[in-house]
């Protein structure tokens, strides 16, 4: 669009692109590092995250009671914070990934079915509206009440909470794809519905869905950590970031690092996922840049 058509846009709007890209790349690197740290946690962790030692509440390296063997200090049971953080990141990411994967697969299937078979459309989307209307944390409470607190309850709740949004995005982009000539051509060639869906429609929707999954990932990690913090998620002694923060709460006034360190890791993960997701969305659809 030429500048003449949009005179009300200030001239400074254009060079904005560069710093944003730099930020997105920095966040991608940060995210990559966190994922690597989580994947290789067993190799990187200096100590066993579950082994208790008789040295509780050792402060990290900048504190008074610092001990070189425990660079980030120890928690209330003398467990090495660094090792627990590495394993905790691993478990937190795993919970998020499982929720996103299950919710994503089911959501894509529902969205494709709704777009492909217009008879199912109304029912499926109405159902999605109902689930979508409930806050994820409330679903988490409900599933923790039914299944008992624990990681399975959280993953189930978050997967279910993920389905409707993904289904909507998939349906939207599938409807666009369905009207393309090559889909019409495929249909007139006599392709079966299944082939048409999987080979023509689904593959062409994936980029939009992937971007949404990235944005959703940050939200899922936040809710999962909040539920774990409430005691409804991964059970102690499990090393999980939310659970660790919740346990650190008891020692907040004399050993604040036990709660603060896992919180900082959560912020890093979610911030990276959010900025990355926004950048990918801008790339995919520049119209959404301001949303």
């Amino acid at each position: 669009m030429s500048a003449a058509l949009a005179p009300e846009a200030p001239p400074r709007a254009r060079p904005r692109k560069a710093p944003r890209d730099v930020l997105a790349i920095a966040m991608a690197v940060l995210f990559g590092l966190i994922v690597l740290a989580a994947v290789f946690a067993p190799l990187l962790a200096p100590l066993d995250p579950y082994e208790t030692t008789p040295q509780p509440f050792l402060s990290p390296f900048w504190g008074e009671t610092a001990n070189a063997a425990y660079p980030l200090g120890t928690d209330g049971q003398g467990r090495d914070m660094l090792s627990r953080l590495l394993y905790g990141t691993r478990l937190t990411l795993l919970i998020g990934l499982a929720s996103i994967a299950i919710g994503g697969v089911v959501g894509i299937a529902v969205g494709l079915l709704a777009a492909f078979y217009s008879r199912l459309d109304g029912v499926l989307m109405r159902l999605a509206d109902i689930v979508l209307s409930f806050p994820s944390i409330l679903l988490g409470l409900a599933f923790a009440a039914v299944m008992g607190p624990g990681a399975p309850a959280i993953v189930t709740a978050l997967a279910i909470a993920t389905i409707p949004e993904i289904a909507r995005v998939t349906r939207g982009s599938a409807c666009t794809v369905m009207s393309q000539d090559y889909v019409v051509a495929g249909r007139s060639l006599g392709l079966r519905d299944w082939d048409l869906l999987t080979r023509y429609v689904a593959l062409n929707c994936l980029s939009a869905v992937f971007v949404f999954l990235t944005i959703r990932f940050g939200q899922v990690i936040l809710v999962a950590a909040a539920l774990s913090f409430l005691g409804l998620g991964a059970r102690p002694p499990a090393a999980e970031l939310g659970t660790m923060a919740s346990q650190g709460r008891d020692a907040l006034f004399f050993a604040p690092w036990i709660a603060t360190l896992p919180c900082i890791v959560i912020v890093a993960i979610v911030l990276a996922a959010n900025v990355l997701g926004d950048a990918l969305r801008d790339r995919l659809d520049p119209r959404l840049r301001n949303a």
Binding site: G218, C263, I266, V267
Partner: peptide
């Protein structure tokens, strides 16, 4: 739009939605 003020507000809101609420709460308590 497009100035430092704009970017600052965007930064505040992105960081705000990326903070676990219990982190904010614990910091305030502490």
């Amino acid at each position: 739009r497009g100035t430092l003020v704009d970017r600052l507000v965007i930064a505040i809101s992105v960081v705000g939605v990326s903070m676990p609420i219990f982190f904010v709460g614990l910091l305030l308590v502490q």
